[in-house]
Amino acid sequence: MAKYGMVIDLRTCLGCGACIAACDFENETPWEEGKRRTHVPEFIFGEFPNVKRLFVPRLCMHCENPPCVTVCPTGASYKNEDGVVLVRYDICIGCKYCAVACPYNARYVDERKRAIDKCTFCYDNRVLQGRQPACVETCVGHARIFGDLEDPNSEVYKLVQSGEAVPLRPDLSTGPKVFYIFKSSVGGE
C-alpha cells in the first residue's frame, strides 16, 4: 500500500505541453473535443516591461477526501488502496454529479465510454508495472515528480514535508495529493 502523489515544480515548467501530448497518447483521451486529463494553463502577471509568466499544470488532485467519491451514487468513483481516485466505467451512469462536485474541475465526459473520465496517475497501465505516469516520464524540465508520499526516501515526501511544495486551495479540506512549488518561479518571485 502506497499513498501516491505528485509534486509540480512551477520553476521548471516550460509550458511545452509535452505532458499533455504524452497523456493523450498514453490514455487515448478525446483530446479533439478539448477533453483531456491534464492541462497547462498559462498566467501572465504585471504589465510590460515587468511581465511574469507562469504555467500551472493541472490534473486530478487525487484527494484524500474526494468529494467526487462522496457524491457518486453507484460507487463508480472510488479511491483505491494506493490512494488513487479512479472510475469504474461499467457502473458509471454518467449523472455528472462528481464532475460538478470536483472543486478542481478535473473530470470530463468521455462520449465513447459514455462515462466520466479523469486522470488515473496512469495507475493500471504504468504505475502497477513500476513505471512513472506518462506526463512525468516525458517532462523535459523534470517539473513533474511522482512518488509515494509516505515513503521517507521519496523525493515527493521530502518536498512536501519540507513545506516547499504546497497544495492548491487546502482550505477546501479535500486533502489534495498534487502539490506545487511556487517559490522562485519564473520572474524571480
Binding site: V69, T70, P73, T74, G75, Y78, Y97
Partner: peptide, 11 residues
Amino acid sequence: SPHLNTRSMIF
C-alpha cells in the same frame, strides 16, 4: 450497483 453508495444524495 454492486458498490452502492447510500450516502450519495442521488441515492
